[in-house]
């Protein structure tokens, strides 16, 4: 590792800086599993669930269209999403939702239930100082 001019410490420090930058970029990009479901009964919102969990193993796939959200110097994805819930839910709609609708009319009395579901999807999240980039993996 000794350099030609003999500055061993200098080359070592450059290597350590490069390693640090590489590891920090790797650590900042995390995989999260997100699922979303909401139930509408008789045209009124009945229940809404958004589940966010850090993935315990690396997800396989390529990041597709991404969403950039204000992170407010926060590294917690749940907090970031709660603060930008409208944008995130609109983004989820573009990814595609499973629609399940059941309706029954008994003696002219109508009851209906509609369930919209985003099946558990892996997202790659890059945390930065002021924003977080969220990209679903496909």
């Amino acid at each position: 590792m000794r350099s030609r001019d003999g500055s061993y410490n200098f080359s070592l420090s450059i290597c350590s800086v490069v390693l640090f930058l590489f590891s920090s970029t790797l650590l900042n990009a995390s995989d999260y599993l997100v699922s979303y479901r909401y139930v509408v009964k008789d045209a009124i919102l009945y229940n809404e669930t958004l589940d966010i969990s850090k993935s315990m193993k690396k997800c396989i796939g390529e990041p597709t269209k991404s969403l950039i959200l204000d992170s407010y110097e926060n590294d917690d994805l749940e907090d970031i999403i709660l603060k930008n819930s409208t944008e995130f839910i609109d983004f989820i709609h573009t990814l595609g939702l499973q629609v399940e609708h059941k309706e029954s009319t008994t003696n002219a009395i109508n009851k209906s239930t509609t369930i919209l579901t985003l099946k558990t999807t892996c997202f790659e999240v890059d945390f930065n100082d002021n924003f977080a980039r969220i990209s679903p993996l496909k």
Partner: peptide, 16 residues
Amino acid sequence: KRSTVRTSVQAMIRNA
């Protein structure tokens, strides 16, 4: 005595 009509739909909608 009782008249019931049940309807159901299942689909995947993307890019709406």
